[in-house]
Design a protein around this nucleic acid. Structure first.
Lengths: 204, 204
DNA sequence: GAGGATTAGTGCAGTCGCTGCAAATTTGCA
DNA sequence: TGCAAATTTGCAGCGACTGCACTAATCCTC
């Protein structure tokens, strides 16, 4: 039952393959036709499963494209809980982004496609954000635990998490509108801004 | 054609009334039964229009509940553009939140209901965020103009806007999970955190 | 104030995302 | 092999949302 176990039963392996096949199909189709023009039936068909089965694996079209599921969130929760003490909360979140784009369990081609789709599809923004809400809650809770404060007692942890994720999203949107730099570089820059304070952004 | 004109034709007045009636009906019903349990047909019925007309006024159930439309965004754009020079970008955004909760064109009861629904309805979070994406784009563009940088050239403006809106959302979520303080107070605290920098949030 | 031009409101039919349920199929295990 | 458990599938259906064609209200001009 451990998260990274091989679980080498046939059943378990096929599930993993199907999960990936759907994600891969979703990414391919979205890259080809755009998010809105792709129907869940198409994704299911390309992945070789029935339309109904699609929804057994992912709760929404969004999540199939993004490829994020419950276990991934659990992973991120643990990352926040077990981060080294010398790292700041902002740093951890920045690192999670990098990891998403370079998941070692995925082949290079899929990772690159993921990156392209995420950057090239503005209509994906709502989906992305929606997905992030859950993540925000998880990270906030983990951060609270980590800091030893009661859940919901302090405003701080939530502000840190939401601001950080918002800043990361800013990087993605910046690339979407033609900005330069890799996501990782931009994320580093954004996080540095947050860390140093946004005060030096006057209107004058 | 100016934004705040009375436009005293009967047609124009009725449109305004219907717009408000739908928003009001949506808020009431959501407060009574919860966002997911309310159907657009119900809202239309209570507002005294046909189900089809509902969608002529608001593009989605979300937006009817939040009561935000194109003109509101235009107002916020102008607010950012015309803000006094001694105010920081963060301050402006904080002020926009207060204004949303105390719109002078709305009666007290509606404003209070708006506040209650926004705070009491966690399932509204995705809708809220979705709605915020558009706002983020508008404010980013306005801030860029204000700072005199080319649109999309710098990462900074986008980071400021996204982080600020994320922080505001943190305040709302904080209240949803039982935290103390008014939205305005919390927003002030959050914005101060962002201004001073999130560095002093280590994990140790 | 009648009459034609605009514009808003409505009904209908249809698409698509998503869900519950129960039958059919596949896999795990004894 | 044969039974139990889990997975896949089809089906029927809900609800958000849209395009279209039509009716009704409002506006404007004469």
């Amino acid at each position: 039952m451990s998260t990274t176990d091989a679980e080498c039963g046939l059943r378990e392996r096929k599930k993993r393959e199907t999960l990936l096949a759907i994600h891969r199909a979703a990414l391919e189709l979205v890259e080809e036709h755009g998010f809105d023009a792709v129907r869940t039936e198409q994704i299911a068909e390309r992945a070789g499963v029935s339309p109904r089965t699609f929804f057994n694996y992912y709760p929404s079209k969004d999540s199939a494209v993004l490829g994020r599921r419950a276990e991934d969130f659990e992973e991120m929760r643990l990352a926040m809980l077990n981060a080294p003490a010398e790292e700041s909360a902002l740093e951890v979140i920045r690192r999670l982004v990098s990891d998403y784009f370079s998941s070692s369990t995925l082949d290079v081609e899929l990772r690159e496609r993921r990156r392209r789709v995420l950057i090239g599809e503005p209509t994906l923004a709502p989906a992305l954000v929606r997905n992030n809400i859950h993540l925000e809650n998880i990270l906030t809770e983990a951060l609270e635990t980590r800091l030893g404060v009661e859940p919901g007692a302090a405003l701080g942890p939530r502000v840190v998490v939401n601001a950080a994720i918002g800043a990361i999203r800013a990087c993605i949107e910046h690339r979407q509108s033609g900005g330069a730099g890799t996501i990782e570089e931009l994320a580093a820059e954004a996080v540095t801004m947050l860390a140093h304070g946004l005060d030096p952004v006057p209107l004058a």
